[in-house]
């Protein structure tokens, strides 16, 4: 139990290797949802929740089924998608019945992120050693997997919320007609990304 190590894992996932702004995974939802802060909050909540649970599931699936049977190398993507999709469907039914308020807050985003690239990426990284291009194939323990996933999910939410706030402001700014909408959004995203590259190599991560 080394707290320092958890902190580093979290920081790497949250900031230094931010899933949206550094690794550019899940750009579709990044640009699609960020038109208003309200929808971004709902999406962020849904992503944090789904990521945590799906990472746990895929971690267990890899360590107890795929790895011992020696079939993980070629079966990890289809089986992870299957697990995540099934879980999201179950979850949607469950909270619709038990927590209508929660369902209203993030209900419509749940089916959207069934196979969101960020969710699948985080779930794969914590389960399959060596999936990220690191120099060593690192095998996460379950608590480490949770910390890492939480970091990724928070990194996603933070980037999405900041970007949504910026876009709401850009909407009323005097932008040249040719740049209105997505072009200026892409430029903004790349500038945010450049800013975050400043963290690269922090603590040797």
């Amino acid at each position: 139990m080394d707290l320092n190590r958890y902190f580093l894992i979290f920081l790497a996932a949250f900031l230094i290797q931010n899933i949206l702004l550094i690794r550019f995974i899940a750009l579709c939802s990044f640009f699609g949802i960020s038109t208003s802060v309200e929808t971004s909050v709902g999406m962020s909540l849904a992503v944090i929740f789904v990521m945590m649970v799906s990472s746990t599931l895929t971690w267990a699936l890899w360590n107890f089924v795929l790895e011992p049977l020696g079939i993980g190398e070629f079966l990890y993507i289809p089986s992870f998608i299957l697990v995540i999709a099934a879980f999201v469907q179950l979850e949607e039914l469950f909270i619709k019945k038990t927590a209508p308020a929660l369902y209203k807050a993030m209900g419509i985003y749940l089916p959207l992120i069934t196979t969101n690239c960020a969710v699948l990426a985080a779930a794969t990284e914590v389960a399959k050693p060596g999936f990220i291009k690191l120099s060593v194939a690192y095998h996460y323990t379950l608590p480490e997997a949770w910390v890492y996933t939480f970091g990724v999910a928070l990194g996603y939410s933070a980037a999405l919320l900041v970007f949504a706030t910026l876009r709401e402001r850009i909407d009323i700014a005097p932008v040249p007609p040719a740049m209105k909408g997505y072009p200026i959004a892409f430029i903004t995203a790349s500038l945010m990304s450049l800013a975050l590259t400043g963290f690269a190599g922090l603590f040797g991560v």
Binding site: S79, L82, V83
Partner: peptide
């Protein structure tokens, strides 16, 4: 066989 069985069972 394992691969087919795993996916089939999960499904």
């Amino acid at each position: 066989i394992y691969a087919i069985a795993t996916m089939g069972l999960m499904g």
